Amino acid sequence: MSNSKGLLTVIGAGPGDPDLITLKAIKALQTADVVLYDALVNPELLQYAEQAELIFVGKRKGCYAYQQEQINELIVQRGQSQHVVRLKGGDPFIFGRGAEEMEFAAKHGLNVAMVPGISSSVAVPASQNIPVTKRGAAESFWVITGTTKEHKLSSDVALAAKSNATVVILMGMSKLSAIVALFEKEGKSETPIAIIQNGTREDEKIGIATISTIKKEVEKQQLTNPAIIIIGEVVKHREALSSAINTYKQVDEVNG
């Protein structure tokens, strides 16, 4: 990234906690002339781009500041003579459209670079002591978008529901009823499920239930987007760990 002019750098901002951005990402922000940032990016990260022009290009509740085509054009327009940083939540190559923007920029003569980010798909469950794999519980995991380009539930969810793998669904809250129905169809009504809203942020909320009871828990906790859905036996690890910690504290108190 030494040639800062005529350059697009796509950066993963991590899942939300500003401490979870990488050092390489911070260094790139410090050399940026323009930063185009999304709605899921923690605003605290913008302090690293003190000299840059900051442009919000994300969306909130379905309202787009810029359409994707406009973002692409903006990247090329500014990137002809400046270092443009495209700051995206999580990892830009996991349902982040980072690859599309890089391809567009490269076709229009820009140099391109990518700085990976910590993906919310594994970091958010981990922040709540839920591993996506665990010996004896899950040998693999699926990461699936809940909403496709056509605004439908991904057909891969039905395939994942047939497996013993952990299933992590991003952008799936609007399709929760359909997701529940698919798992119930496979006889998995008692399978544990967790929904984590605003993962790793100060306003984080979490609901733990089973497939059959999760909709009531969502209503009780008033959970909504942005949220991550985790389905599988690994969800039980959080409760087991909490019990172990509490037991240790009680024994420690008794022993003085």
Rank of each mutant, 00 (worst) to 15 (best):
S2H: 06
N3P: 07
N3H: 05
N3E: 14
K5A: 15
V10R: 03
V10C: 06
G12P: 05
G14C: 06
G14W: 06
D19I: 01
L20W: 01
T22G: 09
K27P: 02
A28Q: 15
L29P: 04
L29F: 05
L29G: 10
V34G: 10
Y37P: 05
L40T: 09
V41S: 03
N42I: 13
P43I: 04
P43N: 03
E44A: 15
A52V: 01
F56H: 09
F56A: 02
V57G: 06
R60N: 08
G62E: 00
Y64Q: 14
A65M: 00
Q68Y: 08
I71H: 04
N72H: 08
L74I: 03
Q77P: 02
Q77H: 11
Q80W: 02
S81G: 11
H83C: 10
V84W: 05
L87F: 07
I94P: 08
I94L: 08
F95P: 10
M102D: 01
F104N: 03
A105H: 11
A106I: 00
G109T: 08
L110A: 07
N111Q: 14
P116W: 01
P116Q: 03
G117F: 01
S120C: 10
S121M: 08
S121K: 04
V122H: 03
P125E: 07
P125L: 05
Q128N: 12
N129F: 10
V132A: 03
K134F: 14
K134S: 11
G136F: 05
A137T: 00
E139Q: 11
F141T: 09
F141E: 13
T145I: 11
T147H: 14
H151K: 14
S154W: 07
S155V: 13
S155N: 04
S155K: 11
D156S: 09
A158Q: 11
L159F: 05
A160I: 06
A160V: 01
A161G: 10
T166R: 06
V168N: 05
V168K: 07
M171Q: 13
M173E: 12
A178S: 14
V180S: 12
A181H: 08
F183Q: 13
K185M: 07
K185C: 12
S189C: 01
T191S: 13
P192C: 00
P192I: 03
I193T: 04
I193P: 07
A194L: 08
I195D: 02
Q197C: 02
Q197W: 03
R201W: 11
R201A: 03
E202Q: 12
D203T: 09
K205G: 01
G207Y: 00
I208P: 02
S212H: 04
T213S: 15
K215R: 14
K216T: 09
E217I: 07
E219I: 10
T224P: 05
N225G: 08
N225M: 10
I230T: 15
I231E: 11
I231F: 06
V234F: 12
K236V: 01
R238K: 11
S242H: 08
S243G: 02
V251A: 08
V251C: 03
G256P: 04
